[in-house]
Simulated scan of single mutants.
Amino acid sequence: MRRSFAFKCTLLVLGWVLVAIAALQVPAHQFWPAAFLGLSLPVALVLTGGLAVYWLLRNWRVALLPILMLVLMWPHVQRGFALHPLHLVPSGEKAAGQKVQLLSANVRIFNVYAQLRDKNFSSSRKLIKWLAEQPADVICLQEFYNEPRPSRTNKDVFQSVRRIGPEAHRTPFVSVTLRNAIGAEFGLAIFSKFPIVHRGTIHFGKLTQNHAMFADLRLPSGDTIRVYNAHLQSMSMDERDIVDSYSSKDGLKAKGVGLLRRFKRGLVARSRQVDELVQHMQQCRYPILFCADLNDLPYSYTYDQLADHLQNAHATIGNGIGTTYNGRLPFLRIDQQFASSQWAIDDFGVHYEIPYSDHFPLTGTYRLKK
């Protein structure tokens, strides 16, 4: 009786895995509740692993079922918890080919607002200085902020284009979505040590802070590549509200409906945005590097559509969860770097030592295959 019940539970969990993976293919603008099934996939995969161990101790033939499922779904396991302990950065002949080092980060408008800033703009100065001093060939920034001229209150702290761009021998391309009363610029930015031969923006219908940009770069090898920088729709959900909603029944009643409404709105918007991005990339004839604040998890339609066409840097060579969100909500990897199949990914990492924004910066090293 016990074995029969355990076997039925095993089949149920394996079915759960398959349904959850299928749900990742459903765009939220067609059926948004499917997202909850997709988000449940890590739980189903963990249970599958537990069942594999359980049956190995009791009946190895039955154990083959969950083991086979894990083998077949290993790329989905790697999305949530990557395992590449033996990966080494290539050297010598193995490292032949044009390399590009890409740094990306959501810089949270360099903490310019009063509720974000600290004394003497210390974190703002440190972050801009750190970015300017990085050896990266290309830097892509979301929630970018720049003051073209020194201001009376901020002086020259936020002249970020000048410092990360020309002073660091990089060409700037800023996609400005908003200018305030003092002429300060908000938007996205790409900085490149390579010549920019073509550039453009993707508005997603209306140009807001949530949009995408691209730049075609000419490498010393003579190859042309395309770099995308995107900031997809946020949930507009305060993390304090999220914590309150699951801390108590009263918190859930007070915050739950509003959070669900915003959650749905974000899902629907991102599903349309990623569809437009993928369509745009499919028309590109150059090798692609893509970086973004996706505002979505690896078990989502957004990530799944990108992973269907590109290789994710962390999932390909990284280790562990790869958390990128620097806030009260743990284990969130919402910032990503992807590369098309023409690239080999030599190195990738998250800069946990740089805590000046609510997102940690990422750096990847990519090599064009010969």
Rank of each mutant, 00 (worst) to 15 (best):
F81W: 06
A82W: 01
L83D: 00
L83G: 01
H84E: 07
H84Y: 05
V89A: 10
V89L: 05
P90M: 02
P90L: 04
S91P: 00
E93T: 06
K94F: 07
A95V: 03
A95N: 09
A96G: 05
G97D: 06
G97R: 04
G97T: 05
G97K: 03
Q98I: 05
Q98M: 08
K99M: 14
K99G: 15
V100H: 04
Q101H: 13
S104Y: 02
S104P: 00
A105G: 06
N106Y: 08
N106D: 12
V107R: 12
V107P: 14
R108A: 13
R108F: 14
I109S: 06
I109W: 13
N111C: 05
Y113E: 15
Y113R: 10
Y113K: 08
A114S: 12
A114C: 00
L116D: 01
L116I: 01
R117P: 13
R117K: 12
K119T: 09
N120L: 12
F121H: 13
F121V: 01
S122G: 07
S122L: 11
S122D: 15
S124H: 09
R125I: 14
L127V: 08
L127H: 07
I128R: 09
I128K: 09
K129R: 13
W130I: 12
L131V: 06
L131S: 07
A132E: 02
Q134C: 08
Q134G: 05
Q134H: 15
P135E: 15
P135H: 13
P135W: 14
A136G: 08
A136Y: 10
A136D: 11
D137S: 08
D137H: 12
I139K: 04
I139T: 02
C140T: 11
L141T: 06
L141D: 10
Q142C: 06
Q142A: 07
E143A: 13
F144V: 03
N146K: 04
N146G: 07
P148I: 01
P150G: 10
P150Q: 05
S151F: 03
R152S: 10
T153W: 07
T153G: 02
N154Y: 15
K155P: 00
K155T: 12
D156K: 04
V157I: 14
V157H: 07
F158S: 11
F158E: 08
Q159F: 02
Q159N: 06
Q159K: 03
S160E: 06
S160Q: 03
R162G: 05
R162K: 15
R163Y: 14
I164V: 08
P166W: 14
P166C: 09
E167A: 10
A168I: 06
H169F: 11
H169E: 15
T171E: 09
P172E: 15
P172L: 11
F173E: 02
V174N: 08
V174I: 12
S175R: 02
V176A: 02
L178A: 04
L178K: 08
R179L: 02
N180L: 06
N180P: 10
N180E: 07
N180G: 01
A181L: 11
A181G: 11
A181R: 10
G183D: 03
G183T: 01
A184D: 13
A184V: 13
E185V: 07
E185I: 03
G187E: 04
L188Y: 01
A189E: 02
F191M: 03
S192G: 03
S192C: 02
S192D: 03
K193N: 09
K193T: 08
K193E: 14
F194K: 04
P195I: 13
